[in-house]
Amino acid sequence: MGHTVNSCKRCSALSGFRRDGIAQQTLPTRSLGQAQAPPDGTAAAQAGRTARSVKERDAFFDNAKYLAIVLVAMGHAWEPLRDESRAVTALYMVVYAFHMPAFIVISGYFSRNFDASPGRIKRLVTGVAVPYIVFEVAYTFFTRWTDNEPERKISLLDPLYLTWFLAALFIWRLTTPFWRTVRWPLPLALGVAMLATLSPSMGKDLDLQRALQFLPYFVLGLVLKPEHFTMVRRREVRMLAVPVFLCAVVVAYWAVPRMNYAWFFHRTSAEELAAPAWYGPLMTLVLFGCSTVLVACFLSLVPRRGMWFTALGAGTLYGYLLHGFVIQAANHWHWSQIDWVHEPLGKIAATLVAGAVVTLLCTPPVQRMFRFAMEPKMDWAFRRDPAEAARSR
């Protein structure tokens, strides 16, 4: 949990998804039987409509989101411990190779039905745009204290700290109808990402470099079908996942002194990483292949049944955005300068504390406390959908 805003902007952070605003992760409404519904206006009819409106969450995806957000927090805990430990850096590289791609793939998968209808636009604004503005402002004021920069100005065009994901998600979801229309969406998205690595002058507006380089993972989620997730949960895949992760750690350990791990952040061009320009498109393809394999392995190991932490999967956006304040406060008090933290047991303790903190921030009481910022109703700001008004009549 130790790096300043400026240094953290060099790494990808996690995020979470809420039911309507970020990743609609619900299954089709359950059938209530074939009996004819009672006439409108009766108590039975109203109860039936209420029951039909309840959607069942998929425990698998909630579990995946929770486990991924825990890895995000642990990655932040390893941030100040990397330079002194090759093993920690190797684990850091492996985690950063798949935790953000996993979140983005899931987000894309549950954005397949985004059609720019009034209701979905409203949810996009209230679930993504408004939290982005609120936390961009909040982080600016908070980091004036933690980073001793009282003159830092609010800039809604230059995402600060963890808010880059919300800015990117807003862009991705607005372009969903386009990706659902073109014939070869994934190759086209990979081409866009490859070209982005050749554009060092792109600028910081909405962290567009990172939005474009992570775009293929979102588009991959758009083109996936339920049977693809069934395939990765097969027993054979689960058996292969552990040795694949072990091989990834070994390769990362070998690569630590030979590779710049900033490639996994997907936020700079090849030239800005002191590499020849042609490295950018090549690394885009290599990293996409490696990350996709690790995401599949990660998803294969995610429990399919309800667990004690399943309910926390609905609050990962809260854990994602709020744990940044804890990190910044810990940095301000220089937690990483404590000697025992750099011992093996200290590193393990820091890892466990990070996981515990983000778990606490995903709990229902925290959700209720901060729902005004994460899930504002804002009915006053939107015209009522004519179709919705007709249904209510």
Score class of each variant (00 low, 15 high):
302 V>W: 06
309 F>G: 08
279 Y>P: 09
294 L>C: 01
310 T>G: 00
283 M>P: 07
303 P>L: 04
293 V>L: 06
285 L>I: 04
302 V>M: 08
296 A>L: 01
303 P>F: 00
296 A>S: 02
303 P>Y: 03
285 L>M: 12
311 A>F: 11
280 G>W: 03
297 C>R: 05
290 C>P: 05
309 F>S: 08
301 L>K: 09
296 A>G: 02
306 G>L: 09
307 M>I: 15
300 S>F: 00
291 S>H: 14
304 R>H: 14
291 S>E: 09
300 S>I: 02
298 F>Y: 03
286 V>Q: 14
306 G>N: 12
290 C>I: 02
305 R>G: 12
302 V>S: 11
281 P>I: 04
299 L>K: 11
308 W>M: 04
289 G>R: 05
303 P>K: 13
279 Y>I: 11
281 P>N: 05
307 M>F: 14
294 L>K: 00
304 R>T: 13
284 T>A: 08
287 L>D: 09
282 L>F: 00
283 M>K: 11
279 Y>R: 07
297 C>I: 10
288 F>K: 03
287 L>C: 11
303 P>C: 03
299 L>H: 12
308 W>Y: 05
285 L>F: 05
297 C>T: 08
308 W>E: 04
301 L>H: 08
282 L>C: 02
287 L>N: 08
311 A>P: 10
302 V>C: 14
284 T>K: 02
292 T>F: 01
298 F>S: 07
280 G>E: 08
297 C>S: 15
289 G>M: 00
304 R>W: 05
306 G>H: 14
297 C>M: 07
284 T>D: 08
278 W>Y: 09
284 T>G: 11
297 C>Y: 05
281 P>F: 02
307 M>P: 06
